[in-house]
Design a protein around this nucleic acid. Structure first.
Lengths: 252, 252
DNA sequence: TCATAAACAAGCACAATTGCGCAGGTGTAA
DNA sequence: TTACACCTGCGCAATTGTGCTTGTTTATGA
């Protein structure tokens, strides 16, 4: 049994039983209690449960009602960090566009601080989170549902963006390089992001440093089209210089 | 065996087994674990699976990870019963409209039986369920997100329905009466349902008997506009006779 | 309050897993 | 043929997961 499976199983047990004990789990999975403790710590770090003396209990807050797939807790720190920097660009009363990525949707809980915000998104998950965490006027584009990440794509999604004027579009990417610009693996995503960029006055790219230097098939835009780039860690010197030369805000 | 074939085979195994270990695959295909690891990385890059320490797991087995808020509406007997009757009206290759209600979304798992189905919905939850349970071409209307039930409403949602032609619209209601027809509490919902009815060749009303005789503020349509009414239990005689007179299918 | 047992964190050792570079093999196109 | 890209297996160092021990903290009942 893979460690990942074991933890997934523990999560399931917690959802149904609401609480677990270290010893029970240890004998159930034939591993030491140390391992179980480490597992529980890891799950607790994701914010789903609360560690207690001798076990763990389910939290019954909003977050626990979200499906596991909604709570993407990989690189949480990096994403959260980026999200915190990103919201500094948001102003009360603004109209902003959020794409489907988990990095961008990490911004959602932080948006509650702003009054009169209007958000447009093409992501089912993002829409759900906006409804759950933040009480914000939310518009969802229509479109064809993309199975992989539950984003709405296609002509319909793009068309919708042609009809609106937003202040800032917050987008992420799979790859960012000096020569090839912002790139995506999927053509459908690329199309939608282009539409987002077009309809927003400014485009802000949220991008952890692992994406830097990567080039994928579909070019979304040149680096010059960006208003700001937000990363979790410092970027290589050549990128720094390029951004400065092109007058692009670099935040990290 | 070609590398491509091997990877295709690994994908198949992952679909059925939900998880694999590097060692198992290595001995199964008589290649080194390095190769398997590279294979898994490649597949993981496509986004289908997630690499874990010692193997990989399938993503998107969402059904077991549904949020609690989705589940609680799930399998009430009445809704399930109605849903089973409703899908008897569906044909392979059809284009159908589903509204946001939990009664209608109970149909979703049953839709997998049909090939080439296209579904249009204005419900975030319904879209999510369609993605999780059924592998169906799904379109979601755009619109303003209604907090209460996460449906997309407003001009945008209605407009979208004007652009499509569907075979059947499955809708629910808050009230059904002989004099006042199909009624809703919310004006926004009423508008969208009207648009749905207009764009579908036939309209089927899913309606448990507790709704019968109720009248709410906003009239969606007359009873005459309905093609069929599906209920969980027998309806009062006067309704039965009325449906018969008006040539409306009554199923229960 | 204090004693006791259970649970804990932290550190260590060991094994499994992994990334990465290298070398050899295979197929393809010029 | 040659050149080149690609796949593959192997070795090595680094990382990760696991179980165990030690000393400390916590819960509980006398």
């Amino acid at each position: 049994m893979l460690a990942y499976e074991r933890r997934a199983e523990i999560k399931k047990i917690l959802e149904s039983e609401k609480s677990v004990s270290v010893d029970d789990l240890a004998s159930k999975f034939f591993v030491s209690s140390s391992t179980i403790r480490r597992d529980l710590d890891k799950i607790a770090y994701e914010g789903l449960i609360k560690r207690t003396y001798g076990g763990a209990v389910m939290l019954n807050n909003l977050a626990s009602e979200l499906p596991i797939t909604f709570r993407e807790h990989e690189n949480t720190d990096a994403k959260h960090h980026i999200a915190q920097l990103a919201v500094t660009l948001v102003k009360a009363g603004a109209t902003i566009i959020l794409d489907t990525s988990s990095t961008v949707s990490a911004m959602v809980p932080l948006l509650n601080a702003f009054d009169g915000l209007t958000v447009i998104t093409n992501g089912i998950k993002t829409a759900y989170l906006l409804n759950a965490y933040a009480k914000i006027t939310t518009y969802c584009t229509g479109g064809k549902l993309r199975e992989h990440n539950m984003s709405l794509v296609g002509i319909m999604a793009c068309q919708r963006f042609e009809e609106v004027n937003a202040d800032i579009a917050f987008i992420s990417c799979r790859g960012l390089s000096l020569e090839k610009g912002v790139t995506e693996a999927s053509e459908e995503e690329m199309q939608v992001k282009r539409a987002m960029i077009k309809s927003a006055a400014k485009t802000v790219l949220l991008c952890d440093v692992t994406k830097i230097g990567l080039v994928l098939m579909n070019r979304v835009c040149n680096i010059e089209s960006l208003y700001a780039v937000i990363t979790d860690k410092p970027v290589p010197e050549e990128y720094k210089n390029y951004f400065m030369k092109k007058n692009i805000l670099l935040i990290n």
